[in-house]
Write a protein that binds this DNA or RNA. Sequence first.
DNA 1: ATATCGTACAATCAAATGGTTGTATCAGAG
DNA 2: CTCTGATACAACCATTTGATTGTACGATAT
Lengths: 117, 117
Amino acid sequence: MVVSELSDQDVNRLFRALADATRRDIVRRTLVEDVSVSQLAGAYEMSFAAVQKHVAVLEEAMLVTKNSRGRERMVRANLDRIRQAQRLLDHFEELWRSRIDRLDILLAEDNPAPPDT
Amino acid sequence: MVVSELSDQDVNRLFRALADATRRDIVRRTLVEDVSVSQLAGAYEMSFAAVQKHVAVLEEAMLVTKNSRGRERMVRANLDRIRQAQRLLDHFEELWRSRIDRLDILLAEDNPAPPDT
DNA sequence: ATATCGTACAATCAAATGGTTGTATCAGAG
DNA sequence: CTCTGATACAACCATTTGATTGTACGATAT
């Protein structure tokens, strides 16, 4: 198992990168197969440079990696990073459980067992 | 099961709201127990208004709700929304599986069974 | 009734974001 | 070698974000 502590900054970048529909779509496409930057650029109604920037944001968030193939740069999504995001959300769920536990304790205190005899 | 279609806008807001350490901390605190805006404000090294704005961002993303209690406004995290975020990430995982499937097919084609006899 | 606590909200401001165009570089095709 | 396709990157601009201070207002405690 990879230890990989995510700093606050890393988590910020991770969620921020996911907070844009175009970038989420790039992740989707590159999860299924490697896609070059120009192929991606062809898929959206914006300039090549704009798409390039989105890829750069994803790269900084480590949600994708780029590899050279000939003169093209192939973009590939990094599933591990998505799983790390999931684990962060799992942690929230765990915290929520502690709320339930506290509530149970409170209810037990407010509703003591009836005095015997 | 809740149908709850999340629009692109909704998803943007959801992930954007999570892309800030203070806001994630507010979600953590309010998952465990209800906390008033002023209690939250006391927990961070920033103005009351700044914290109030963070709560507003979380509220727009529907990650928290506010209820009046006396003159206080109690903030409570909404676990359902966190689960929706998890489901979005699950969907990415599913797409990734299709990559593996394609790869298997390709390998099968490139490596045909050896000619018999 | 009035002082105060908790909140809401407007105005303001610096920095970050998301987009553009233009220029430079680099690998392959002819 | 030269032309072209695919990138990279800088400069620029409008909008949004994250924070501030200041003002207003409703609910409570005294």
